[in-house]
Amino acid sequence: MLVGVDWAGVAQQVVAGLSSGGTYATLAVALVLIYRATGVVNFAQGELAMFSTFVAWTLTRHGFAYWPAFLVTVLASFAGGIALERAVIRPVERASVLTIAIVTIGLFFIVNGAAFWIWSPEVKSMPNAFSTRPIRIGGVAFAISDLGIIGVSLLAVLLLWLFFRFTKLGLAMRAAALNPESSRLTGIRVSWTIALGWGLATALGAVAGLMAAPPLGSFDQNFMQPILLYAFAGAVLGGIDSALGAVIGSLALGVFLNLLGTYVSWVGTDLRQAAALAVILGVLLVRPAGLFGKLAVRRV
């Protein structure tokens, strides 16, 4: 018997969960992009998103409205991502995956520190992207901002998918990620496709950061770190080599976390991360390559 279940409340929590899941998904796709191009998880992905968000924050303090600042920041992040790849990743392009991973950890410290250096440690707040009014659908009140965030996140991912699926450059980038050697013989400038991947990932990160920051009310330079954790978990849950998997994994994680936080009081805020990771681990033990990932065929 399900007497006493407040279904409207559940629906609200699910939408709120999809909203945070949407930001995880955007960042998760950024992680997948770089993972497929270079074989590493970019530990600095969240910090780059944070840095982009602070750039946008500065713009809003200098007379920009939210959306113009959003647009400028996303474009600047794209360029910044490319520049960063050329500066620090290209020199280790041929080194081991572990070496590249450590470089991204170094970047994590640099970007985080630089943000504290430039913007001082006080907390910041940002204007809202969407109206904070609730909207009633079928007798249930949803927050417009939640729906807006879900929409923007999915739109960003969709645009990226269209780019990869239907453009020559997108095809070249996929080919370069799958088979760099053969791609070079085909005339693809593989090294540049990696830089481009960093640019796109950084731009996506900017979208994630700019969706995540306003609802927090106030945020500081560390606000993206838990989001990176969830994005990583969502990506691995879905299968790190599948962008679609990363999106679904992240959305599912967002909903799960929200329901867990609302309805299971024992867990509390401290253990929420741990509980989420434990559940993911359980899933991975059953499906070692994630929900949608392909397990490399191994004959033993």
């Binding site: 410290f109 640099i110 520190g113 250096w117 440690p121």
Partner: peptide, 18 residues
């Protein structure tokens, strides 16, 4: 300065790896 040590530490890591 706030954040500066972190920048130097990160730079040291990146430089060693490169």
């Amino acid at each position: 300065a706030p954040g500066a040590p972190s920048v130097f530490f990160g730079t040291a890591i990146v430089l060693v790896m490169i």
